[in-house]
């Protein structure tokens, strides 16, 4: 089992406390104190599951801005494109050609891999089914409704611009 480290506890505490502030939406001292106590307890118990690598990777304005740009501009754009395509398939009655393809990726951190897998699953038309690691590189098994190509080519079609932005936010 992983050990609980102080920076991880602090980062988890900050996230929990922000959520508390958002949900209660008041700054009365008693609310703040109760929130601090509860978030500290939650952070002590859950920090080792929540944070695996560097605890303060996001404490960098440029990175934070990149992440915000990804979640506000790049990802919704891909989402709308995929949704319109799905609408065309469903309403227009195009033939689907389902298949499971294996695509390579070059992300290194756990966060980046999880974020890419989640982005792929959130896009209608593709669902990540499994991630395996071979020769230090992650490979995604993706169920795709238009499995026309394989390997690198399929990877380009599925990941699109998402992988580039995820690498900018979660790595180096």
């Amino acid at each position: 089992m992983r050990k609980t480290k102080a920076p991880a506890v602090i980062a988890t505490f900050v996230v929990c406390f922000l959520f508390w502030l958002l949900l209660t939406w008041s700054v009365k001292p008693q609310e703040l104190i109760a929130g601090a106590v509860v978030s500290l307890a939650a952070a002590l118990f859950s920090a080792r599951f929540f944070i695996h690598e560097k605890a303060f990777w996001f404490a960098n304005p440029a990175k934070l801005f990149t992440g915000l740009f990804y979640w506000v501009c790049v990802f919704p754009c891909e989402l709308i494109k995929a949704n319109l395509h799905m609408a065309k398939v469903v309403l227009g009655g195009c033939k689907v050609k389902p298949g499971i393809v294996k695509i390579p990726s070059s992300l290194e951190s756990d966060y980046g891999r999880a974020a890419l897998a989640n982005s792929i699953t959130l896009t209608p038309g593709t669902i990540t089914m499994e991630i395996v690691e071979e020769e230090g590189k992650p490979w995604y098994y993706v169920h795709w409704i238009e499995a026309e190509s394989d390997g690198e080519e399929a990877g380009e079609a599925i990941k699109g611009r998402m992988e580039k932005w995820i690498r900018r936010f979660w790595e180096k």
């Binding site: 989402l79 949704n83 799905m86 609408a87 389902p98 959130l122």
Partner: peptide
């Protein structure tokens, strides 16, 4: 509209996995 598309997709798609793909429309847009 996209929720409607998702539901129609669930009804029209041929197998389990494709139906899940269509249902993603409902839960995203």
């Amino acid at each position: 509209f996209f929720a409607l598309v998702g539901v129609l997709g669930i009804l029209r798609m041929p197998d389990t996995f494709c139906r899940m793909q269509a249902s993603t429309c409902v839960s995203t847009l």
